[in-house]
Nucleic acid binder design. Structure first.
Lengths: 158, 158
DNA sequence: TATTGTTATACTCTATAACTATA
DNA sequence: TATAGTTATAGAGTATAACAATA
């Protein structure tokens, strides 16, 4: 009982008539927005094969040499098993080195390898391009507005 | 070579001294924000065992009886295989029924079952509580600001 | 006993290739 | 030839239980 779509473009053919209030939910809206940003990230990082989480781990290690894995898992709000597995990937790829802390035999201290430090420069360039791209497509006003409302200095709503 | 944390609370013990500019990235900020919202969603929906995606599928079916799976995958920006699998879950749980379209033998039309319609009322109550909770913790000003900057009427940055 | 790291495991979500049956 | 749905599969991310080594 559906009328055939005739000349609509493929991307917008047969849009649902009613979102049922779904698009009034902040979580849904943010999810759609974030998906857009992640895809831009993925496009710009594609040749480097770095996901958002791997990127954030590398940036934190670069800024905090000899940090512990437990520090990272707190800073990124990740569960330790998941962080350990992701760091393991970076170690396998030769970008990160783990070494035991002499003063605490339980801790693993993380640092970038020589290759890891060289890699950071490529990452920085690709990430800058991603940010410039985002700001261009959002428009400066909307981009800056979102930055203001997501500032880490704001009280966390958790 | 790390000074022992003495009296810091567990949640904020040994915060990393330097985020390396990571917290200046919109994508990172949105990811942290969304994680907070998803956890609130999960807490409120826990007894109903409904994830954000399953929720959005149910809401769209409820608002568009006899819609096609391809319509849903477009409206939710999901790849068809992923949508089909999630809908299959809802069919297994007896909340959704699939039936062939008489006028197009390829299409599957979706509708809520009797149980599905009853379930929507529980969903609505839990989701309202989730939203009220969010608005309370974000504060009305920040919440409304985020709503304004993520409005679906804004041009999509993709 | 508590903390750090680790293994194993499960679930959600995204993505692509390849196939079917209909149109 | 194109579309709607489906199967299989791979990867990212999140979550919990259970354990070893160390403090």
């Amino acid at each position: 009982m559906r009328k055939p779509a005739k000349t609509a473009s493929p991307a917008t053919a047969n849009p649902l008539p009613d979102m049922g209030g779904l698009d009034a939910a902040l979580g849904f809206r943010l999810r759609m927005l974030e998906q857009t940003i992640m895809r831009s990230f993925a496009r710009h990082m594609e040749p480097l094969e770095i996901s958002p989480t791997l990127y954030s781990i590398l940036v934190l290690i670069a800024a905090n040499r000899d940090c512990r894995q437990s520090d990272l898992s707190q800073a990124l709000d990740m569960h330790p098993p998941n962080l350990v597995e992701r760091v393991g990937l970076l170690v396998q790829r030769g970008l990160v080195a783990r070494k035991r802390d002499a003063s605490d035999g339980r801790a693993q201290m993380l640092d970038l390898s020589e290759a890891g430090r060289a890699f950071m420069e490529k990452l920085r360039i690709a990430h800058d391009a991603h940010i410039a791209d985002l700001r261009d497509r959002f428009g400066a006003e909307r981009y800056d507005g979102l930055m203001a409302l997501t500032a880490p200095s704001l009280p966390p709503p958790c």
